[in-house]
């Protein structure tokens, strides 16, 4: 197929992923105006973004190889994450947080690789 080598199972996978993702993002709009969330659910939903993002951040920083826990200061991911937290807390600027922590991460990684 055009030399892009899609297998049938991959087509199912991409189609399935696209369907569930769009479904989640769209489902509330057709019925909008006719429904109201219960109060407790609305409150709970407010904690979803930080909780989900933290659940993605922490393992990717502390278990960088996906297998072993690495809480040492020679873990460049941990150094970079600490830098991101400090920069973010002080300057409250998203772009600065990303750029500064990326630079510190890359320097730490390079330094540790050099030995």
């Amino acid at each position: 197929m055009f030399g892009i080598g899609l297998q049938l199972s991959e087509i199912y996978m991409v189609a399935g992923m696209a369907a569930v993702t769009f479904g989640i993002r769209y489902i509330l709009f057709p019925v909008s105006g006719r429904m109201q969330f219960p109060k407790w659910l609305e409150k709970g939903l407010g904690y979803v973004p930080p909780a989900v993002l933290t659940a993605i951040i922490v393992p990717s920083v502390l278990i960088p190889d996906g297998k072993t826990l690495d809480i040492n200061l020679d873990n460049p991911y941990l150094i970079g994450a600490i830098a991101a937290c400090i920069t973010g807390a002080i300057f409250k600027n998203l772009l600065l947080t990303i750029v500064v922590s990326m630079v510190i991460f890359l320097v730490a990684q390079w330094a540790f690789a050099m030995g």
Binding site: I57, G80, G88, A89, T97, I98, F105, L106
Partner: peptide, 17 residues
């Protein structure tokens, strides 16, 4: 190690919360 961009961005999003 450019994959650090994801946690970096997400940390930046979480902090204001």
């Amino acid at each position: 190690g450019l994959d650090f961009a994801m946690p970096a961005t997400f940390i930046g999003i979480v902090i204001p919360y």
